[in-house]
Nucleic acid binder design. Structure first.
Length: 303
DNA sequence: TCTGGTACCTTCGGTAACTG
DNA sequence: CAGTTACCGAAGGTACCAGA
């Protein structure tokens, strides 16, 4: 049985961090051929190529990305041990690398992540926003621990992942006071012919809204389409149109953007998911998010 | 397009320290 | 003391880039 050589792992880690053998050799005060040789040996023992050549430099393979994610934790822990041994007490820090789909309202993203901030352990959140497909690619290469999205893992995605539903709620519609006065009819008739800000094609909410408009015989005037929910809210705040968001964050949106509520419906349901590469959620912060989100939404009578 | 310079990685052969 | 491991110097291969 092969044993992990931590010296090899350290050389690998330094090469991965610096992006080249020559730069790593400067950091480690060794010659490049030593690093190269030890790295080859490490790859041979592990039975996996960890780097591939990219021009003059090296880039990590998928296996390399996986090893790096573990090496980061191992050497962070080592550094922490040194600090403890040198009588510098330090709180144990848990790192959470989370990707937030840009279709997910930012206020909701915060609301979902909030339970993780209340963990007893010190948490460092590394939060990234982007298109779901890009975030899922990063999840597959272990650059992210979890992806928060308004839709489950797409069947077409070329990534192995598991969708964990955190909850669901109805939809609320918001507008500025000035815009609201121009459409005084009762909800939802006041949406008819009103300027409307529609979520982009990546958002799960978009299709549900369009279908609901059709069922209700409503014909809002589409004033804009937005992939980014924060951008859509900003346009809504400026009076460019009415927009929809999950009811669970209605209060936060009205406070944050100084908007008024047109109406609410439970006929459209917005769902929230945590997507991970593991069937079971194991990261302590993600577990906290998962548990708290379900309880919180249930308590509000929304699930 | 060719050529020379530069940067980077790998292989080979050898040495020194460590281990059982 | 033989085998193993880690290391280094020299040399060679590959990729990139600038200038003719």
């Amino acid at each position: 049985m092969s044993k992990l050589n931590y010296k090899h792992l350290h050389y690998f880690w330094m090469v991965a961090k610096t992006g080249s053998i020559s730069r790593a050799s400067e950091q480690l005060h060794l010659t490049p051929q030593t690093i190269s040789g030890q790295l080859s040996l490490f790859e041979e023992i592990q039975g996996e190529a960890l780097f591939r050549k990219s021009g003059r430099n090296l880039e990590l393979t998928e296996a390399g990305q996986l090893v790096l994610s573990y090496a980061d934790d191992i050497f962070a822990l080592g550094q922490e041990l040194e600090e403890v041994l040198h009588h510098r007490p330090t709180a144990r820090t848990v790192q959470l690398r989370v990707g937030v789909s840009d279709a997910l309202p930012k206020t909701l993203a915060y609301r979902l992540l909030e339970p993780a901030l209340k963990l007893e352990q010190t948490l460092r959140i590394n939060c990234r926003e982007g298109k779901l497909e890009v975030l899922l690619a990063d999840l597959a290469t272990h650059k992210l621990d979890v992806v928060m999205s308004d839709s489950p893992m797409p069947a077409s995605a070329n990534v192995r992942g598991y969708s964990h539903q955190l909850g669901e709620c109805g939809i609320s519609f918001f507008a500025t006071g000035t815009l609201l006065q121009q459409y005084p009819q009762a909800f939802p008739a006041n949406l008819d012919a009103a300027p409307f800000l529609l979520p982009g094609e990546d958002a799960a909410l978009r299709a549900r809204l369009l279908q609901w408009f059709d069922q209700q015989g409503l014909h809002p005037r589409i004033a804009g389409e937005f992939d980014d929910s924060a951008l859509m809210s900003a346009f809504g705040q400026a009076g460019a149109g009415i927009f929809a968001a999950p009811t669970v964050v209605a209060d936060m949106i009205m406070r944050q953007y100084d908007l008024q509520l047109l109406g609410q419906t439970d006929e459209i349901r917005e769902q929230f998911y945590a997507i991970s590469v593991q069937r079971k959620l194991t990261h302590p912060a993600v577990l906290a998010i998962s548990r708290a989100a379900r309880i919180d939404l249930f308590a509000m009578g929304e699930e």
